[in-house]
Design a protein around this nucleic acid. Structure first.
Lengths: 121, 121
DNA sequence: TTTTAATATGCCTTGACACGTATATTCTCT
DNA sequence: AGAGAATATACGTGTCAAGGCATATTAAAA
């Protein structure tokens, strides 16, 4: 289980995380609210904890799990560069710029019609 | 392949998406820049396209792929509620509130020592 | 029309992971 | 100490997706 993205790819884990936004929860509480078998909850919590998404404290026999934001910030970070795509309604503009750049590392004078392209090296 | 999260769970797909941030690219260009076999690229692009992450236009035999932001906005949306966890440095405050809520749906009088916390309810 | 470039698809294998069920572990309370 | 609650872990199983390789497809160039 490498990246944070694989962690949050699992629906149940996302559910657990979302649940923990409001407050910390015991395993049993999660189990009941999300209607999933206890071993499933524990296993997912294990994964989440190993990945640093949650932390736990002990309260007698029960464990209270709470959110730890760091790993999610990685997602946030990855997402950042894309944000410019919807932050304004510059859809058209952006598409325009897109066309202009058209970077293709190999030298390539590609145009459409009469002038074709050279047989690429 | 259901959720957008599973789509971006794959490292190569994330790489492709990131590559498309700068400009649209042909399959071959992606293939070369990311150093991955062509079928792999095509397959991932297929997945990305089916999921609405990219769109393509035809340029002779080659296809130009460009980004489509919508699906990523879903990630953004899911992430939103968590943002309050790092937006301010209210880590301490937040942890405090966390403790206060402490919801445990079932009736449960199990307490620890003489004076624990009030039996909730 | 034959060849070559660019991309897509099909098949097969392999590995990862989620789940269910059973069981172990650790507390608490009587 | 014994019973029961809360949580963790082990094991076996099925599924599904990613990769490799070969091949099909489409378009262009010779």
């Amino acid at each position: 289980m490498e990246s944070v993205f694989e962690i949050i790819a699992e629906p149940n884990r996302r559910a657990i995380l979302s649940l923990l936004v409001s407050s910390q929860q015991s395993v049993g509480a999660i189990e009941r609210q999300l209607r999933m078998p206890q071993p499933t909850v524990s296993k997912h919590l294990r994964v989440l904890r190993d990945a640093g998404f949650v932390e736990s404290t002990v309260d007698a026999q029960r464990r209270l799990y709470r959110l730890n934001p760091e790993p999610l910030q990685q997602v946030e970070a990855w997402l950042a560069p894309f944000r410019r795509f919807w932050s304004a309604h510059l859809d058209a503009l952006e598409r325009h710029l897109d066309r202009m750049k058209q970077s293709t590392p190999t030298k390539r004078k590609t145009r459409r019609k009469p002038t074709r392209r050279k047989p690429r090296t």
